[in-house]
Design a protein around this nucleic acid. Structure first.
Lengths: 367, 367
DNA sequence: TTGAAAGCGGTACCAC
DNA sequence: GTGGTACCGCTTTCAA
């Protein structure tokens, strides 16, 4: 169709091994050292004549030479690679956005970012994986595989958890910054705390403020969400205690719920018996599911029961009534990247924790 | 708190370099070769006495020895690493599920799977990145960075696109299998075709079947979605042509829409003037947005206009009326993993394309 | 201005 | 049974 500016590369025999810097050197009639200088533009080292540079570049181009990262890393001793754990549960848009921002900021800083799955093997011995959902609650990272790659920094995003031993292994392998993002405080690691308790606390506080006293808290039945739901429930409890006093107590009731319409309908059916006037539905998705089921069962929102979710999804604003939500603002990916970079530069600094999240309630019609 | 079974590792001076196999050899009083044999359990090579094996393993354990992947890859010439492009736009649950399945199936097959962002640089010269949304439409992969890692296989998931030149670079670097997942057919690469045109075609065919003749097709204003929306619109056109004849023609109208309530409200406001009786809303999210806006503007669904989305999101089933949707069933991650493995084993095979997707319409109340 | 050569950490052949 | 050793591809000091 359109004419290709550079005809890809002279289609070499497919079986032939990738060209090395030695090949380039031979082709250009210079030494490997010269090739290295030219291609890396190491100014401080040697000045190569412009003619030679051109020859080398031409040769590299023609051969389709691409340096071998492993060889380079081996020689250099370090790899400027940042490993981040890949989510196993379908990640929300907030997460995706954060990950992408961090990613691109870090690559602007010259790091190569790779998302590695937290492997199946590890401490918790969950054999097979019957459930389609995930590798189990708070899946352990396969740190061996990580450490083998000698990353410059390792970032564990929820729901991946790192044990102190994991951190030790990584440090031992020369990882300059080990960072956990999420609730658990891990010995030896820097951390960006995202205390999920605050989410539950904010939600319940809001409901209490709205005059609700008997509050349900949805706890997803899905495995792999425990990392979040546990702390959210705990925070809810704390807020309930806080909100009590002055005569009327706030009563909390955990409500297991699977993310299916059947489960929601079942819960809605026994709703009157529960006698609740408010519910924190874990997140917006569960909230939408529950709200629909409640309405179908004749329960009015917010008159009979106030419903609040979390994550402030765009879609959740479209419900009738519009859903109130706890909004989580994460630190921007760029800030995060800067933090990582800082730690890599001065790994001596004592493990610190940083807030990674601010929580605010967006009140809409459902409360 | 709980007693650690293995006290992580004798806390060595943090500044010290990671232990090498030579360190292990010294500690165990054997040669590096022996260490290698023991730790890799290379049965065919040599039989080491059980006593020695134990000493080596003990030493490795005590030192917290972790082999250096780069060194191994260098020696081996190959790296059993599968690179997959990371999504830049927030990925849907289908995508996440697929990626995770593929990931875990591949690691069961002994591959290390890494998700690499398709970097900013590349063929399309979009300078800077003013927009927060994405790196531009159908972002080009930074294949150089990929090729440097000498992956055994490279997988481009949408919206990442690979040019034939990209494929050549990867192959040149020894990548045994280059696979693109998505619409475009790329020379030299194997592919899992996911023809998005089928989605648009199925949606419009369904609307026609329901008796609709003047059909709108939502085209997201967001950049980065072009890869999908273009083909979906094209497919819609094809189906419109197909559905025409027999007296009444099917008329199609592209409807630009940003994913904001304002944009949706604006579109809804001029709805009567458009004179449409059916709309394919690109996907369920846009469909929900549009449907809400239409209803707020007094347009009845499905009486005045039939609405259909795509992706069959759980949340979209909860709307009133329940949203009809085009459901995409991807090949399972496990199948995909097997495909990759097969290609890696016999890279000689001619590039093939495989269907990766089946499309079915789930009719609900909105049509 | 350029080349020779010494490694980085592991693996695997071959000799003892 | 085990140890010596030659690589893998690249960087970088030192000499020429």
């Amino acid at each position: 169709m359109a004419d290709t500016p550079h005809p890809p590369h002279p289609p070499r025999p497919p079986g032939s091994p990738p060209p090395t810097s030695a090949d380039v050197a031979r082709q250009a009639g210079v030494s490997r050292a010269t090739v290295s200088y030219v291609l890396n533009g190491a100014e401080g080292s040697a000045r190569i004549s412009e003619a030679t540079r051109a020859r080398v570049r031409a040769a590299a181009d023609e051969l389709g030479y691409v340096p071998h990262a492993a060889a380079r890393a081996l020689r250099a001793g370090a790899s400027r690679m940042v490993l981040m754990s890949a989510p196993h549960v379908p990640a929300g848009p907030l997460y995706a956005r954060f990950a992408h921002e961090a990613q691109s900021a870090l690559s602007r800083l010259g790091y190569t970012v790779a998302h590695l799955a937290a492997g199946v093997g590890g401490a918790t011995g969950d054999v097979g994986d019957a459930g389609a959902a995930g590798d189990g609650p708070g899946a352990p990272a396969d740190v061996r595989a990580w450490a083998e790659l000698r990353p410059t920094a390792a970032v564990a995003l929820p729901p991946t958890v790192l044990t102190p031993a994991d951190v030790a292994v990584l440090k031992q392998a020369g990882t300059r910054a080990v960072i956990t993002v999420g609730p658990p405080r891990v010995a030896g690691a820097h951390s960006l705390t995202m205390d999920q308790r605050e989410v539950g606390a904010a939600a319940v506080a809001h409901l209490v403020e709205r005059g609700r006293r008997r509050v349900g808290v949805v706890v997803p039945a899905e495995p792999g969400l425990d990392t979040f739901s546990g702390p959210r429930l705990a925070g809810a409890h704390a807020a309930a205690v806080e909100g009590s006093g002055g005569g009327t107590d706030v009563r909390l009731r955990p409500l297991p719920l699977a993310f299916t319409e059947e489960s929601a309908a079942a819960l809605a059916a026994r709703w009157p018996a529960l006698g609740l006037d408010g519910v924190f539905a874990y997140n917006d998705e569960y909230a939408m599911l529950l709200m629909r089921a409640l309405q179908d069962a004749g329960v009015r929102v917010p008159e009979d029961v106030a419903v609040i979710g979390a994550d402030d999804l765009m879609l959740a604003r479209l419900t009738r009534p519009r859903l109130s939500s706890v909004r989580l603002d994460r630190a921007s990916g760029a800030e995060f990247a800067a933090y990582v970079d800082e730690l890599v530069r001065s790994p001596a600094s004592r493990p610190r924790r940083r807030r990674a999240m601010t929580v605010t309630v967006t009140a809409r019609e459902s409360t």
